[in-house]
Write a protein that binds this DNA or RNA. Structure first.
Lengths: 180, 180
DNA sequence: GTCTATATTCCGATAGAC
DNA sequence: GTCTATCGGAATATAGAC
């Protein structure tokens, strides 16, 4: 494994921060470079084009999500409860990277859309192991989507207080209860 | 009431179309004007700044959503079923306007964020009349958010085939069932 | 590897003719 | 009301010094 490319990581982190706090339009090469503490030329050495920067973020967020799916699959509380509980925006690196990717104009950045689609599919697969009714699995999935959506929409901070999650989990238990 | 400002409506419609099909970055004044069949100067007569264009879209989408809330409140099937059924992206003017507003970088466009927040609140209020358990109402709300989110994320077309909605409605019925 | 120019394109907005 | 022409600024990307 490579010796930890600190410069690349710092640049991607700056990209995420700006997307999160100021939106896509503010995430210019100049701004990313300045936030990371390098010049624009320095940035372009690591990411030759802006598309390369988006590609870097896409790979980064997919890697983080893959780790999350592993934890989800082996969670004692079960995948569904783990998924809903962690769908509340909590400032983790994964949450930040996902919202940042969401902020990219996805019609203009097919790669960003692809990353989010893959991540959602990974979650749905992990959910389906526990929640065998497809419609129920989809409903749980959609609630998680909605939680993330609220965070992506309402700005930088969480819309859902953690104390509300407990009640939400009860509702989910009602969904995942056996049927037919 | 004014004599139907056709030019304004045509410009807003072009703005929505471009946001929907190509994303925020493509929605320049030039592109909006060209799509509407007028010059940039012509556009700027009706909307003196780009913020004015966003304001126009925000008012437009809020008005359409207010109509929807009225229909929702008087729907024979009940607000919850109506809400979920119509949350599937269906190319209605309201759906298009909402997704278009979603595409605007909301950190940079507080007015777009405000419009979406107000619309969600209106839906939640209407839902709460039928679904009195707040957590259950929130869960139904979130499923609708998730459906819209999927549409906003996956591009221009619907992610959820209408034939899946029936099964989703059964799940919702399980949520809205009496509790305690 | 990181920097400072600089080239080029494009966007939002203004001015003023018609 | 709608047009053309144009300004000022900003964004992506290149070239080449260090």
């Amino acid at each position: 494994m490579p010796p930890a490319p600190a410069a690349r990581a710092k640049l991607l982190d700056a990209f995420v921060t700006i997307l999160l706090e100021q939106g896509e339009r503010a995430a210019t090469l100049d701004a990313v470079a300045a936030t990371a503490g390098v010049s624009k030329g320095g940035l372009l050495y690591h990411f030759p084009t802006k598309d390369a920067l988006v590609e870097g973020l896409a790979e980064h967020v997919e890697a983080l999500a893959a780790e999350d799916v592993e934890q989800m699959s082996s969670a004692p509380e079960g995948p569904a409860a783990y998924y809903i509980r962690t769908s509340v925006y909590a400032d983790t690196p994964l949450d930040q990277a996902i919202i940042a990717t969401t902020r990219l104009s996805q019609t203009a950045n097919p790669r960003a859309r692809q990353a989010l689609r893959r991540i959602r599919q990974g979650w749905l697969d992990a959910l389906s192991v526990e929640v065998t009714d497809p419609a129920a699995a989809r409903a749980v999935m959609l609630i998680g989507d909605g939680l993330y959506y609220g965070a992506a929409m309402s700005g930088e901070t969480s819309e859902t207080p953690p104390e509300d999650v407990g009640e939400l989990l009860e509702v989910v238990r009602r969904i995942t209860g056996e049927r037919d």
